[in-house]
Write a protein that binds this DNA or RNA. Structure first.
Lengths: 341, 341
DNA sequence: CTCCATTCGGCAAACGTTTGCAACAGCTTA
DNA sequence: TAAGCTGTTGCAAACGTTTGCCGAATGGAG
């Protein structure tokens, strides 16, 4: 059916091993022979069969990429970057979607394990233990989760959350809400901790609302609860929820940022589309995808299991504005300036 | 290293062929033996090696999914649906991104051909000839493109465009713009043709602006050109461009839909987020993904090469409003009503 | 008790590669 | 001139499965 190494060998009058070497170890074959083989291969339209190659070398040149939800706009840039980067290194990428379900996640790792050289686990919802377990089956790199001893690339969302809270504090907000993300999310815990600590240090209140599914609807559904807390500023687990909340508040006649300020996280492509434009913490998702691929591919060579942290950036747009204590804050700043003199 | 069929055979005291049959043809093995084998397999953590299986059966149980741009919000729902659907049928999905480049597209098909049982080509940018060519290398199903003799699932964007134009006409617009999509896009040609015909029949003007990359920036960049035409309504190749245009117009102080009406196509998740909410043609992308997978998997069985057309729906939101001839249209409608009586 | 059909399981070839080993030619070196 | 390289090629085993074929065992019919 398909043209194999054997056909090429016959057509160019050499042994199949020579053809094989022409492709996998060119320096071992005479340049003249090589070009002859290459020519006939080209002419016959020969393409090496990766399955056969994988069988003997044990390397499939495939990697798996498991995400919670392909349709969540946080992931596509990461997927795209990872895929493009992997392809440049001659790897193909299986993409799979767990629908936020840890069971599916674990099943997927098993199912993919034999077909790939490694798996990128993005924002996993499994327990640390489970991940440790799976790790013995197949090389793993986790994204957006820190597990000791496991190679990981995380976006420093804690730093971003701190900056965001400080920004709100500086604006004169004293009572904040953290609109939490899904149970099992490492990112969620990080944000919560960082935001809580920053608020506490400043003597401000932070109410946590959640857990929630990381989708727009959850943000919208939380509107009442947010208003009930009496808080004047909200940090949301992600932009999707922030946008949902933003629109639900607007529908209720609540002004943003007039009455309530909102900060999202991720800087998805559409956070700049809503009005007011969303203040948010930008995540370097594309860089994360590329870095994760690199780490996965290097893992084979040495046993290096680094953990890379990528910095995040607060992007101040128009969904945040002065809070009730803005005058006091301004006064304090002035005093501080005088003291400095 | 990994546990193979041989290990299971040894551990359960049967021949490897029996183990193989236990998995691939259970009815051929004694229930008692079968459960024993299953038990040891489970205990040893045996997972069949798909590469080896593929080598002998010729079926990889993988499919390829090639899209122009993963980060374009049109695709993720399609990818997600296809992946989930495929997995339910025990297939894994390679996802690849061509960056709108027909060369990359063709290379990708070649590269993937030997590793998959078929490829889903979504919104391909190649020429019909090239696709016909590739088709002989690997089973293909194209999405959003109609090529005679080739299995395809298309969303009836022509119908959607007609509805959209009629909607604008009914609102009293007489001079429309079609903000075209990328060269090589079948969808683009369809929309253009349908919109042009509908406008012409009604004696209205339709100016085509393009081709353009199907991204927000292109929509924004077209703002001046749109205004220069003097048109009062715009149909855009996709929501991304429509949104870009919408915001660029607003930035220039042009009221939407007061001065210019805008209709998008796709109904991406974020078309409802902008203000005014975007009137758009909803595409059943998830259904398309599932259908395409089904067609691809059936293709092996029989040689059926159907072409499925999925209907689209005009969703009227707030980016479209009355045009300059609204009174005349209303009068005509009234006359028509009287005539009917 | 014999014969036949049926069920089950073993044997071995095959899938398309890679790769260690050996063979050979043509050199260089001593 | 012998010995030893170096560069190039062929040979054959191996990777983990599937599957056509065959033989053994079992049970029922006659």
């Amino acid at each position: 059916m398909a043209v194999t190494i054997r056909d090429v060998a016959r057509a160019s009058g050499v042994h199949i091993s020579t053809v094989s070497r022409t492709f996998s170890a060119p320096h071992l074959v005479n340049p003249e022979t090589r070009s002859r083989v290459l020519a006939t291969a080209e002419q016959l339209g020969y393409r090496p069969n990766r399955a056969a190659r994988a069988l003997i070398t044990g390397r499939t040149h495939n990697i798996g990429l498991i995400v919670a939800d392909i349709a969540n706009p946080f992931f596509p840039p990461l997927i795209k970057a990872a895929e493009t980067h992997a392809r440049r290194r001659d790897y193909h990428v299986f993409v799979a979607d767990t629908d936020e379900d840890p069971i599916v996640e674990s099943d997927l790792v098993h199912a993919l394990a034999k077909q790939v050289d490694g798996i990128l686990l993005c924002s996993p919802r499994m327990s640390d233990d489970q991940i440790e377990q799976l790790r013995r089956e197949v090389p793993l790199v986790v994204v957006n989760r820190m597990i000791t001893g496991l190679p990981a690339v995380v976006m420093d969302v804690g730093q971003g959350a701190r900056e965001a809270v400080r920004h709100l504090l500086d604006l004169g907000h004293r009572h904040l809400v953290y609109l939490a993300g899904p149970r099992g999310s490492w990112t969620n815990r990080e944000i919560r901790r960082a935001a809580g600590a920053t608020a506490r240090t400043a003597g401000a209140d932070l109410t946590v609302l959640g857990p929630n599914q990381p989708v727009e609807e959850a943000g919208a559904a939380a509107a009442e609860a947010v208003l009930a807390t009496g808080a004047t500023a909200v940090l949301a687990y992600n932009d999707l929820m922030a946008i949902g909340l933003l629109q639900a508040l607007q529908d209720r006649g609540v002004e943003v940022p007039g009455q309530v300020s909102i900060v999202g996280i991720d800087d998805i492509a559409y956070s700049g589309l809503v009005r007011p434009r969303l203040t948010t913490v930008a995540n370097p998702t594309a860089a994360a995808g590329r870095t994760a691929v690199d780490m996965l591919l290097q893992q084979g060579d040495d046993g290096a299991t680094g953990q890379v942290t990528l910095r995040t950036d607060l992007i101040i747009r128009n969904s945040t504005g002065p809070g009730p204590c803005a005058p006091a804050v301004a006064f304090a700043a002035e005093v501080a300036a005088h003291v400095k003199e």
